[in-house]
Computed example of a mutant assay.
Amino acid sequence: MKLGLISDIHGDFAALELAWAHLITMGVDRIACAGDVVGYGPFPDRVAAFLRERGIPSVRGNHDRWALERGPGAPCRFGGGTPSDETLGYLAGLPGDLAFELGGKVIVVVHGSPRSDMEFVGRDTHPPGVLDGYLEDIRCDVLVVGHTHRPMRYRGPSGGLVVNPGAVISAPVVETSRSFAVLDLEAGKVTHHRVEDGSPFDVEPWG
């Protein structure tokens, strides 16, 4: 079983469509998104509709939450497109976290960290002991995070994984890795790929 992982699309419809096409070609069984559907990019409505129509579950990122807090018709203060009422309704229905089972593994998806959609999971702030604590506390085999726009992978001593697929957005309005990830649940292997051509690239493991 293969799980495709995307995050931080930020209204970049072209990048989302390209990442999705690569994942489908790679034969993933399911795709999940770690949030920030909107913000920065010009096409929040097209991105939201794409995720909804293809049944790709997503958590609510901080930019999604901010769009809801601004309300209908309010412009994005980060220069992105203004979400329609329909898109705001979609964002309002996104959960703060997702938990599901696939291939006999329990996967939990959040945006920032299990504690906050604004918390950056970084090497300095989240050493192995902290990540191991997350995996143990929420009783999952795989924890998926986003928010940093930087790909990462960590494997704990018990085999649990923490993965950040990086950011899908490719528009030059924000720092981004322009990447997505594939998790082979049977092999317990994570690969990161470039949005532009789907090619894999190395990500130094934590720990």
Results as ranks from 00 to 15, higher is better:
Lys105Asp: 08
Gly198Leu: 01
Gly112Asn: 09
Val195Pro: 03
Arg178Ser: 10
Gly35Thr: 07
Arg123Ala: 15
Ser113Met: 10
Gly79Met: 10
Leu135Tyr: 13
His10Cys: 09
Pro157Phe: 10
Gly188His: 05
Gly129Glu: 15
Val162Ser: 09
Glu119Cys: 13
Gly27Glu: 01
Val195Gly: 05
Val190Thr: 11
Gly81Ser: 06
Pro200Val: 03
Ile169Tyr: 12
Asp137Phe: 09
Asp141Cys: 05
Ser158Ala: 15
Asp29Val: 04
Leu131Arg: 12
Glu204Lys: 11
Thr191Arg: 06
Ile24Glu: 15
Pro172Gln: 06
Pro165Trp: 05
Leu94Asn: 13
Gly35Cys: 05
Arg60Leu: 11
Met26Phe: 14
Arg155Leu: 06
Gly129Arg: 09
Trp20Cys: 00
Arg123Gln: 12
Arg150His: 15
His22Met: 01
Leu18Phe: 02
Pro165Gly: 07
Asp64Lys: 01
Val142Trp: 02
Leu98Lys: 01
Gly96Cys: 02
Gly146Cys: 11
Thr176Gly: 06
Gly71Arg: 00
Met152Gln: 12
Asn164Gly: 06
Gly81Lys: 00
Leu183Lys: 04
Ala187Pro: 01
Arg77Ile: 14
Val121Ala: 09
Phe43Pro: 09
Phe13Gln: 07
Gly73Asp: 06
Ser7Asp: 14
Glu136Arg: 12
Val163Phe: 02
Ala74Pro: 12
Phe13Pro: 00
Ile169Arg: 09
Gly80Asp: 07
Pro42Thr: 11
Val38Arg: 04
Gly160Met: 05
Thr125Met: 11
His126Leu: 09
Gly146Gln: 11
Pro157His: 12
Val142Asp: 04
Thr125Arg: 13
Asp97Leu: 09
Tyr134Trp: 15
Val173Thr: 12
His10Gly: 11
Val195Ser: 04
Ala48Gly: 13
Ile107Cys: 12
